[in-house]
């Protein structure tokens, strides 16, 4: 080991010690100053609960109309909300529920697809906004009905699209790394 090697070795040790010292000091300061913070999961649930509370206000009148079976009024109000808040998937979830109540299965499924494409967390059972079970119930009913209709009208493109939407929703609800 010549002088240059010795110098480099000492410099290396010094740099490692200084860097370690900086990291330790930073961590110690950080642990002194921090207020209690929510872990990631708690923060996510809190965020969604706040969103649910905001949505309850936004969609209050829609829900009233829906509960009173004034389906067309509810849809008109939803369309207005969609125009002013196009990014909120909850509009499409409510719209799909109303369309489902009206008995239009294929249209309800297509509307659920829009909502889930906007926010895939809607079919994540770890979130408070999970709607996977109710969508799956609809799919189970609709799949049998639409498959029977498809046999009668094999070239009907609307039916083919409805079935494609069903399979899409099934794949999303099934989970996987996507």
């Amino acid at each position: 080991m010549d002088r240059l090697d010795k110098f480099n070795f000492i410099l290396l040790v010094v740099l490692i010690l200084v860097t370690t010292g900086m990291l330790v000091q930073h961590e110690l300061n950080a642990s002194k100053n921090t207020e209690p913070v929510l872990d990631g999961k708690e923060a996510m649930i809190k965020q969604y609960k706040e969103q649910i509370a905001r949505d309850a206000v936004t969609y209050k009148e829609v829900v009233v109309a829906k509960n009173e079976n004034r389906h067309q009024d509810a849809i008109t109000m939803l369309d207005e909300i969609i125009r002013s808040h196009p990014d909120n998937p909850q509009s499409y979830v409510l719209k799909a529920e109303i369309i489902h109540e009206k008995g239009q299965l294929a249209k309800a499924i297509a509307t659920y697809r829009i909502a889930i494409e906007m926010d895939p967390d809607l079919v994540d059972d770890k979130t408070p906004i999970f709607i996977g079970d109710s969508v799956m119930d609809l799919i189970t009913v609709a799949r049998g009905k639409l498959n029977r209709e498809k046999k009668l009208k094999p070239n009907d493109k609307t039916l083919a699209l409805a079935l494609e939407n069903i399979y899409y929703l099934q794949r999303r609800i099934a989970g996987g790394c996507e």
Binding site: E164, Y167, Q170, R171, A174, G175, G176, C177, E178
Partner: peptide, 9 residues
């Protein structure tokens, strides 16, 4: 074929 997780057609 249908409804498989993270798949497409």
């Amino acid at each position: 074929l249908n409804g498989q997780p993270a798949s497409h057609m």
